[in-house]
Design a protein around this nucleic acid. Structure first.
Lengths: 214, 214
DNA sequence: GTCTATACAATGATAGAC
DNA sequence: GTCTATCATTGTATAGAC
C-alpha cells in the first residue's frame, strides 16, 4: 500500500492503479447501495458500474460488507471534521449553534447519496449489521451541542433549561431539514429555511411572553 | 372472503382459519422485516415463524411485496385515524399541537416494529419500491399542522411567521422524539421530554426578548 | 493487481395433490 | 385453504492463470 515511488513519470504505477480501482469501486458502491439498498445491491452491478471485475473488489475490500464499512468510515471522518470545524468558531451561542447546523446541513446536501446510505444502515436492520460504531455520529454532535448550549446558559444568553432537551431540539431541526433532502418527493426547505426555523426556536412561537421567567 | 356464516359453533370456519393465517403472517412478516430488513428477509423465515407454509403466503398476498404493502396500508390507516382524532380536539393552538404530537408519539411507541419497517421503506431505495403512496403520511400530518397553526395565528395566540416553517419545526420535534424510539442505542426522551421540548419552542430559547415583535 | 470460469448456497415462486 | 416437492434464478465468494 505505501511502498516508495522512486520512478520516472511514464504511466500509472501499480499502486496508482490500485488507488484508482479503489476509488472507482467506492463511488460505484455508493451509487448502487443508494439506489437499490445495501441488501438488494449485487456485487455484479457494482463492479460493472466501476468497469472492473469481481475479484478486484474482493482483493481490496474482502467482502461486500467490507466496502460498506469503508464508505461509512469515510463518512464518519468527514462528519467529525465538519462538526469540529464548526464548533471552534467564535461568536454568541446562537451564532455558533446556527453555524454548526449550517455546516452539517451543507455537508449533507453535498453528499446526499452517501448520507442516504449511512441513514439507511443507521436505522436499518439490527441483524446482519456491519462492524461499525454507528454512534460516532450521535456522540460527536451531542458533545458539540452540549458544550455550546452549556456556555450559552452560563453567560445568560440562553434561558435556563435541561441542556439535553435543548440539544434534542437543535438535533430535531437538523434532522428535519436534512431528511427533506433525502426524500425525493419533498421540496427541501433550504439553507434559508433552516435559519428561519432556528430563529423561530430562539425567539419562541407564542405571541405574548407573560410567563417566560424561570 | 365475506361469505355468510350460517352454521353451528363447532370449530373454526374456513374463513376464520383464513383470517387467522393472514394475521399470523402479517405479524411474522413485521417481525422479520424489522429484524432483517425487507430485502434481506426471506419468505422461508416468515412462514416458519408464522407456523405455516409458503403457498399460504402466496395465496393470501400474492408475493413478498404484497405482504409488505398490506403492512404499510394498515399502518397508514392507523396513522390517519390517530391524526384525525387528535386534530379534532378542542383547546388553544398550543394545546392542540401538543395533543397531536402526543398522539403520534404514543402511536409510534406502541408500534415500534411496524414504524421501523415503514421508516426503512420510506427512506429506503428508490428502485424496487412497492406500489404504495408513501406521502399519505406527510400529507396527513402537514394538513393537520397547517390548519392548527393557521388558526393559532389568526387568533393572535401564535406569532406571525411562515406557516410552513412552523409546521416543519413541529415536524422536527415529532421526528427527533420518535427516531429515538427506533434507535436501540439511545435512551428515548419519553413523553415528558416531548412536552418539555414543545414548551421550549413555544417560549423560545433566548433569555431576553427585546426584539420579538415580528 | 487483475482477469476467466466456476463452485455452491439460498432465494422467490409454482405445480399439483388433497 | 393448505400441503409436499420442485424449479429456475440469482447471489456471494473463490481457484487459478497471467
Amino acid at each position: 500500500m505505501n511502498q516508495p515511488e522512486s520512478r520516472q513519470a511514464c504511466g500509472p504505477t501499480a499502486s496508482e492503479q490500485d488507488q484508482r480501482s479503489r476509488e472507482r469501486l467506492l463511488r460505484a458502491a455508493v451509487d448502487v447501495f443508494d439506489r437499490k439498498g445495501y441488501a438488494a445491491a449485487s456485487v455484479r452491478e457494482i463492479v460493472e458500474r466501476a468497469g472492473i471485475t469481481k475479484p478486484v473488489l474482493y482483493y481490496h475490500f474482502g467482502s461486500k460488507e467490507g466496502i460498506l464499512v469503508a464508505i461509512l468510515e469515510e463518512a464518519a471522518r468527514q462528519f467529525q471534521k465538519a462538526v469540529t470545524r464548526a464548533a471552534q468558531r467564535p461568536g454568541s451561542a446562537r451564532e455558533r449553534l446556527a453555524a454548526l447546523c449550517e455546516e452539517i446541513y451543507s455537508l449533507f446536501k453535498q453528499n446526499v447519496p452517501v448520507v442516504r446510505v449511512a441513514h439507511a444502515v443507521y436505522f436499518g436492520p439490527r441483524e446482519g449489521l456491519p462492524p461499525f460504531d454507528f454512534n460516532v455520529f450521535d456522540r460527536t454532535l451531542a458533545d458539540a451541542l452540549h458544550r455550546i448550549v452549556e456556555e450559552g446558559m452560563a453567560t445568560g444568553e440562553l434561558r435556563r433549561a435541561p441542556i439535553d432537551d435543548v440539544s434534542t431540539l437543535i438535533n430535531g431541526v437538523i434532522e428535519v431539514c436534512t431528511d427533506q433532502e433525502l426524500n425525493p418527493h419533498v421540496t427541501p426547505i433550504g439553507l434559508d429555511g433552516l435559519h428561519r426555523v432556528l430563529n423561530l426556536i430562539f425567539e419562541g412561537l407564542v405571541a405574548t411572553h407573560e410567563g417566560k421567567e424561570n
